[in-house]
Design a binder for these strands. Structure first.
Lengths: 207, 207
DNA sequence: GTCTATACAGGGATAGAC
DNA sequence: GTCTATCCCTGTATAGAC
C-alpha cells in the first residue's frame, strides 16, 4: 500500500502507511488512557480501539513500555514547541503558567507518574535513563529562564540558580501529585509562592 | 476482639498467631520489594518467601493493593513516632533532615511512587483517598513546624504558611523523584535552598 | 510490510476441600 | 487457616497468511 501522507512533496513515501499507523497508535493510546487509566490501557485495548490485533502493535513498538515512552517524548516535543512559540522563556510568571499547563492535562501527568514508577523498577535502566535525561534537560531549560529573570532583576542574587531550577521543577512535580489526589490543592498558589520567594527582597510579582 | 500480641499481659490472645502472621507478611513484603521492585513483589513471591501459598495471604489482606497500603501506613506511624521522639517538630533545619531521611529509604520512596501511580487509576478511589488524607495530614504537620519556626523568627512573615507547607512537601517529593532517577541530584541542597528562601531577609540558616 | 492467529508464562482474584 | 485448582487477564513471542 503506497499511501503518500505528505501532499505536495511529490515523493510517494513507501512507508507512509506505517508512519500514519504509528501515529494513530500513539493518538489512540492517549485516548484509551484517558478512559481506562494506565492499567486499563493494555495493548489489546489499544488494538481494539484501532481495529487491529494487539500483535500488530509490535511492528511499531518493541514493548508497551516503549510505546508509552514515545507518547511522553512526543508530548515533550509539543510542549517545547509551544513554549518557544509563545516566548515562554522570556516571560515573567512562568512558574504559575507551568502550573496552569499541568492542570490542563491531568491524564498526561498521571501517565508520567505511572511511567516514572515503572522506571524505578530494579531492571528498568532504560526508562530510568529516559527520565534522568529528561529531568536534566528541563532543569537546564528552567535554568535559562531563571538566568533571564535574574538579568531583569526579578530573581535574588544570593542563591545558586541551578539548585533553584531543580527546586522549581520539584515544586511543580510535587504540587501536581498533591493536586492529582486532591483537587482542593491549589497548584497556582504554590507556584506563585515559590516565585515570590525567588524574587529579591521588597519585590512583588508584576501582573 | 481479643487480640493480645503483647507478652506480659497474661491473656493469651486467641488470634495472636494471626497477628504475628500478618506482621510477618508485611515484613517480608518489604524485603521482597527491596530485591524485586514493585512488579516483582507478587503475592506469589511474598507467599514463597514465607512458605505459604499466595491464596493464604488473602486471610489477612483483601487485595494486594491493601497489603501495600498497610505497609505504607505502618511506615508512616513509625516515622511519626521517630519524629516526636527526636523532637523534630521543634528542630531547625528540618527540611534538610527530611531530605536525609528520604535518602535513607529509597525503596520506601519507590514504593510510595508506585502506589501513588496506582491511586491515579480511574476506579481506585480508595487508594486515592488514602493519599489525599495522608497529604492533608503531613501538610498539617509541616504547618505546625513552620508556625513554630516563625515564632522563633526563622520564617518570613509575608507569606501564607499553609501554602508554604504544601510547597515544602512538594519540594521534598519532587526532589526525591529527581534523585531516584538520578543519584547525582542533591536533595539536601534543594531543601537547604527552600529553607533559605523561607528565612527572613538578611537571615542565614544557623548550623 | 503488515497483520492475524496462536501459544506461553505469569499475574490477581476466587471457590471449595480439608 | 491454609491448600489446590481454576478463571480471566496481561505482555511477550513466533509462525505464517497476504
Amino acid at each position: 500500500m503506497e499511501v503518500s501522507a505528505i501532499s505536495g512533496t511529490g515523493s510517494r513515501g513507501r512507508y507512509a502507511k506505517g508512519v500514519l499507523r504509528r501515529q494513530q497508535i500513539l493518538d489512540r493510546a492517549i485516548e484509551v488512557f484517558a478512559d481506562l487509566g494506565f492499567e486499563g490501557t493494555s495493548l489489546r485495548a489499544i488494538g481494539d480501539a484501532i481495529g487491529v490485533s494487539h500483535a500488530a502493535l509490535r511492528r511499531y513498538f518493541d514493548t508497551r513500555e516503549e510505546l508509552f515512552l514515545e507518547v511522553l517524548r512526543e508530548k515533550d516535543r509539543q510542549a517545547v514547541t509551544q513554549a518557544h512559540e509563545s516566548g515562554l522563556d522570556e516571560m515573567a510568571g512562568f512558574a504559575t503558567l507551568a502550573a496552569n499547563y499541568a492542570q490542563q492535562a491531568p491524564g498526561l501527568m498521571a501517565l508520567r507518574h505511572s511511567m516514572i514508577a515503572r522506571a524505578l523498577e530494579p531492571r528498568n535502566e532504560h526508562s530510568r535513563e529516559f527520565f534522568r535525561d529528561r529531568y536534566r534537560s528541563i532543569r537546564d531549560e528552567a535554568l535559562v529562564v531563571l538566568q533571564h529573570a535574574r538579568d531583569r532583576g526579578a530573581v535574588r542574587t544570593d542563591i545558586p540558580l541551578d539548585t533553584a531550577a531543580a527546586l522549581m521543577i520539584a515544586a511543580l512535580d510535587g504540587l501536581s501529585t498533591q493536586w492529582l489526589v486532591d483537587p482542593d490543592v491549589d497548584m497556582q498558589e504554590g507556584m506563585a509562592l515559590i516565585e515570590q520567594l525567588l524574587a529579591p527582597a521588597g519585590t512583588h510579582a508584576a501582573p
